[in-house]
Amino acid sequence: MTDQSGEKMAIETKDLLKRFDNEIVINKLNLRIPFGTSMGIMGPSGTGKSVLLKCILGLTEYEGNIFYEGTLLEKQNRGTFYKNFGMLFQGSALFDSLTVWQNITFKLINSAKKILNSEAKEIAIHLLRDVGLDENVCKLMPSELSGGMQKRVALARALADKPSLLFFDEPTTGLDPLTSSSINDLISTIVKRDNITSLIISHDPSSINAICDEVIFIEDGGVGWRGKASEMKFANHKLLKKYLGSLQV
């Protein structure tokens, strides 16, 4: 897909609509994420941000169309999409029954190309350093880690297969302010360094500010406001103003 200015789109949704038993959660949403952009989706809790991700990931039924690098995403071709894709879940979603290094290299170990355990461990250690963790963490189970460490490990897992596209669902929810800001910085650094197209979903403006180039503020299941992240605080949009204002205690 290219838009009027000729820019190529990594992800594009056209009239995306999602309803649960006649309750419309996402209402004809048109979203365009250009290559190399960090796009933020902000909005109060329960506005359908996570549901939007589920739609793009094909984890739930929806109406309308979603395009990936210009190709319409359907059941059959999601495989290619997942191959170039990584995701950091809200609760980290690390596999309880696997160690940290098995979690991180899950995609490499279980894909068609075989790699040795020793190679996988090597890669895991490298990725752990990348997300600011010690290599001793390797052998631990996810339950032995703090929330911030779990987030870092989950980020390492998402990065393991060198994705060109990364999604983040509330990357800092449940973390203290200091840990939050260090996770935000980490994400921002890695995304810029590897030129990864990313979609960040958050109700937290500080996350969006730290990571994103562009922002969409969700209102009534559609776009309430869109613009540059740096211009968000000057936006002349009633609900967005109220939303940002209510957070500055």
């Binding site: 990931l57 984890l59 495989g79 879940f89 979603a93 690390l94 309880d96 279980n110």
Partner: peptide, 22 residues
């Protein structure tokens, strides 16, 4: 069910693994 609730099953899908098969 715990894996479902904590999004571990969704995570399997995003790691290109069929959760029913796995």
């Amino acid at each position: 069910a715990t894996m479902r609730v904590t999004e571990q099953i969704d995570a399997l899908v995003t790691l290109a693994t069929d959760p029913i098969k796995y």
